[in-house]
């Protein structure tokens, strides 16, 4: 039955491999999602479901479509075909009378607020201080008072171990520090879903641990849904409760970290894991 929160009337008809409880609405659902760049098909009819509060890690060789999935959820790019649902609501497109219709910018804008992303290259705004980076969107997008936003920003800086860097310029910080600020900036928006796109790939090896430690802490103390692309297999094992192995835009294998890392069934998963470890 179509309802306002379920315009397609398809809730529960998930095609991923996750068992949903009766009436449970998943955080993220991909339905036959296709993404093409020109003639290059990156995702080919992808289906998968992420339950609320899940920490799902996507692994696989580069070019297998992992980062593309995060970019589609963040609406940095549009899918070529298929549908994505966030908390049961369509993200960018809707099916109407058998046709795929793009949703209005204003609607997308509201959906986007529920999702946050941390990037490989941090992408802090160099024209603002650390504090200004963190309070920018809470004040100007969510309409929080500046005083509240500043109080929260200081709490978050405490949480990421940079309480004395509020007035610093991003460019004066090390890569690890910049990434911790980027995590604080993402959390300041109180996202329901946090997307982590190879957040340690651009960091010096000795600071990877501090960034991953903070993310572990966030995973342990909040119920935010996380979708993680990483090459840090130990981190994936520690934080996630589900691992999806991708190759050529398809899920090759999926399971708990123990299943995937200790006892991979598929040849491609075995080959990938022995190559990265």
């Amino acid at each position: 039955m179509p309802t306002e929160s379920d315009p397609l009337g398809e809730l529960g008809l998930h095609t991923g491999a996750v068992e949903l409880a009766d009436g449970e609405i998943p955080a993220i659902r991909f339905e036959n999602v296709v993404k093409q760049y020109g003639s290059n098909t990156v995702l080919d009819g992808l289906n998968f479901t992420v339950r609320k509060g899940d920490r799902v890690t996507l692994i696989g060789p580069s070019g297998s479509g992992k980062t593309t999935i995060l970019r589609l959820v963040m609406t940095l790019e549009d899918s070529t075909d298929g549908y994505i649902f966030i908390d049961g609501q369509p993200l960018t497109h809707i099916e109407k009378d058998g046709r795929r219709i793009v949703l209005k910018d204003k609607y997308r804008f509201e959906m986007r607020k529920r999702i946050g992303m941390v990037f490989q290259q941090f992408n802090l705004f160099p024209n603002m201080t650390v504090l200004e980076n963190i309070i920018e969107a809470p004040v100007h997008v969510l309409g929080h008072s500046k005083a509240d936003a500043i109080t929260r920003a200081h709490e978050l800086l405490e949480q990421v171990g940079l309480p004395d860097k509020a007035k610093a310029h991003p460019t004066s910080l090390s890569g690890g520090q910049q990434q911790r600020v980027a995590i604080a900036r993402c959390l300041a928006m109180d996202p329901e879903i946090m997307l982590l796109d190879e957040v340690t790939s651009a960091l010096d090896p000795e600071v990877v641990g501090e960034v991953l430690g903070i993310l572990r802490n966030i995973a342990a103390t909040t119920d935010v849904t996380m979708l993680i692309v990483t090459h840090e297999m130990q981190f994936a094992r520690d934080v996630s409760n589900r691992v999806l192995m991708f190759d050529a835009g398809r899920i090759v294998e999926e399971g708990s970290p123990a299943e995937i890392f200790d006892n991979p069934q598929e040849e491609r998963t075995q080959a990938f894991l022995s190559a990265v470890s």
Partner: peptide
């Protein structure tokens, strides 16, 4: 202005005007 800056404004749900006035143009 690097693509990552534009993408960060999207990830923070900034509007087109906010993105230009507060992030992109100053850079």
């Amino acid at each position: 202005v690097p693509k990552g800056q534009w993408e960060a404004t999207t990830a923070l749900s900034m509007s087109n005007v906010q993105r230009m006035v507060r992030v992109i143009f100053p850079q």
